[in-house]
Design a protein around this nucleic acid. Structure first.
Lengths: 336, 336
DNA sequence: ATGAAAGCGCTAACAA
DNA sequence: TTGTTAGCGCTTTCAT
């Protein structure tokens, strides 16, 4: 039933060490010998036992994905990206959705997790990836990780993949301005994410660059949800000074806003232009479809995982990457 | 830095075997001894090394979640349910999204996976959970699993959690009939899932029970997507005989259908009633909100995982469960 | 109730 | 280039 390295060694008439060399692709094995071993492995259907390997090396080939995010699309896309890279490198991935907690509690939990399961490293997403104390805690405890952050000024520094939300938000807002809009509303998402501040900062910068004043009454504070977007547009439209365009912090909010606006009889984009952020499935399920910026979630996950694995195998390729979401113009801001 | 069972034994002045007994909650340890050990463990912050434990027991405490599903909400909900149960039992979960392949290829892949990582068992969802050959393959190879299926007649038999899609679909259709509808359209989803057939079967049964004839021209074959629902309603409405109500195979399709119907100026539900299936976030992001049936995904995942873990620990509690989604009536079928 | 010793299957020095 | 010999940290007989 279960075949071990000894069986292979016996069959190939070599020592177990040689077998070990072969399965680890070590160079110093003569081609002929290697061939004998490979054949034996195939004939026996041998699979190395990970547990034994992990124990011997006192390290594992499993990484943990740690997150706390209600956005199913985001979570699944991240997982896909991570697994993609892992599969090609022989790593497995364990998922760890966590409730939001104090940084200290999270750090303790993660240390516990890592020592217990001998996790090789962690991929962290917001909000955990943006908790400075948590990160330095992990640093101190020698836990390998990579943190995906909105490129807010110097949160953790090293070991990050940063998303330039600000630049992208600025591009979106500028696009609206280019369309002739002067009263541009902003729907702000959940403030626990840095991305929220960054997107707002981009919005403000674009207005200032165009010598437009920022009207605080055109800024609505909500959540990253459909309902919140719907509520937000409702509120902004009841202003004395109504917006002619709205930039929502993500597509789901934008979809909610668009939905509500159409219910009240507004023509989109003629009477109200609406833009989102993320290029999630929502963006193409409205009519007209949403102008937005592509947050390449799976790509980001891949970059992060590559960086982590590189560090784990000491190939310190310094993939200290930054990604800027690209503007996608669709019907919700541009008349057909 | 790293503290092992030896350190604990030394500190507690007992043998490592006694420490082992304590961490495994074996009964035959005197209370006083146990206390000494527990203290030592706490003082040292000892964490058993899973890899060593797995190796010694030649089995692991990790289960795999295997799926192939584009519905992010479904996937994340399943994961939540599985993790919920696992956390309380000291199990970890590894995720394995797979491309759709031949049953044989999947079986080979899974056997490889299980022997390599010594996975304790698998949670399978459609379509894998509904491939008879695959399941008997796993049976033969002594791989533990639990299969979540739509309760189609005798697919795998044992080791399943079944969802009674048919009964639920029948309830939804009957509800539409109760509202006086006689021309009820059906939007069929992707045929690779048994759930699709079952939901259609429920639709047909309800019509027959009410002595209504099934009009095949009112049945549209599509995918479980927003776009497909939109396309489907479009097609059905171009019929000479138009439906006054539509039952879509899932909420996403229903949302697409509702969306398109409203675009063409129809009043919902007065001119067209629409019902979905799943009670996903889509169901409450339309206006009016969708009548649907609750597919309690996370609950199903919990049941499945409990069953699997019970079997793994020989507590053969025969939790051979069945779940019937419950009808939820909302504005899309019932005038305010 | 407790302990000694022999593995679990592999990798890591070190030799040869 | 290949093999020998210790472990990695825990569980399991089998004694005591």
């Amino acid at each position: 039933m279960k075949v071990s390295i000894n069986d292979v060694a016996r069959r190939a008439e070599v020592s177990i060490k040689t077998v070990s060399r072969v399965i680890n692709n070590e160079p110093s094995v003569r081609a002929a010998t290697r061939q004998k071993v490979v054949s034996a492995i195939e004939e026996l259907g041998y699979q190395p036992n990970q547990a034994a390997r992990n124990l011997a090396r006192s390290r594992s080939y499993t990484i943990g994905f740690v997150y706390s995010n209600p956005n199913a699309y985001y979570v699944v896309s991240m997982q896909e990206g991570i697994i993609d890279v892992c599969q090609n490198s022989g790593y497995e991935v364990m998922i760890h959705p966590l409730p939001l907690q104090e940084q200290q509690a999270v750090a303790d939990y993660l240390e516990n997790l890592v020592t217990r399961t001998r996790l090789a490293g962690l991929v962290l997403t917001p909000p955990f990836s943006e908790m400075p104390e948590l990160l330095s805690n992990l640093d101190n405890r020698n836990i390998e990780y990579v943190a995906i952050q909105s490129s807010a000024p110097s949160l953790g520094g090293e070991r990050t993949v940063r998303v330039n939300d600000r630049a992208a938000a600025k591009n979106i807002t500028s696009h609206l301005i280019d369309q002739g809009h002067q009263q541009i509303g902003f729907l702000r998402g959940d403030p626990t994410h840095y991305a929220t501040q960054e997107r707002e900062a981009g919005y403000r910068e674009a207005l200032l660059d165009a010598h437009l004043t920022v009207d605080e009454s055109l800024i609505y504070s909500g959540q990253y949800s459909f309902e919140s977007g719907s509520e937000g547009v409702n509120q902004l439209l009841s202003n004395s000074k109504k917006p002619t365009a709205i930039f929502a912090s993500n597509d789901e909010m934008a979809a909610g806003a668009l939905f509500r606006a159409r219910l009240t009889g507004l023509e989109i984009p003629e009477q109200l232009a609406i833009a989102g952020f993320e290029n999630s499935p929502y963006a193409t399920q409205t009519w007209p479809q949403l102008t937005t910026a592509t947050l390449p979630v799976a790509d980001i996950a891949q970059l992060a995982t590559q960086q982590l694995l590189a560090r784990l195998s000491k190939r310190d390729n310094e993939l200290d990457s930054e990604v800027t979401p690209e503007l996608i113009i669709r019907g919700s801001t541009l008349p057909a």
